[in-house]
Amino acid sequence: MRPNRYIVLISILLGFAGAWLSADAVGQYLNAARSFASVDASYVEGSFAWKDPQYNEATAEFEITNDSDNDARLAHFGINLHFDGRFAGARYDQWEAIDIPAESSVIVEIPFLVSISEIRSEGGDAELSVSGQLRLEFENVGRDMTVPARGTIGHVPYQESNND
């Protein structure tokens, strides 16, 4: 007895549909994985500057690199400032999303506010560092990605020339 040709034909058609769905799924997953692996956030060396001699406020620049094939949007950037490893302050302003086109990078200036008054006076002598994370949304990828951001700034005394 030979197999029914219509059943075999239906099965083969289902197989073609399955092959297309499988290849599409692998392609989508690879695209997402490549996007997630192609972003980086780093402190721009020498960009940290105190805005006042009381070490209340400061600014620093961070470079966000998007080497993926998808446009990205920097949806949130939470970053803390540390004096000798101790939490001293953070970026407290409302964040406005920034678009980062594919295969490009942007430099964002982050304002810091020192909120721990007890150690504020150590701002000029302490070893400064930053840590935090940023959240990126990619075009064609349904899930956001959180990227850790860390950087060692070093000793940065107040310089009046920075605020001229």
């Binding site: 058609l13 289902l14 197989g15 399955g18 092959a19 297309w20």
Partner: peptide, 8 residues
């Protein structure tokens, strides 16, 4: 065919 469809 059926295996590939199920795999998808």
């Amino acid at each position: 065919g059926l295996t590939i469809a199920l795999g998808a």
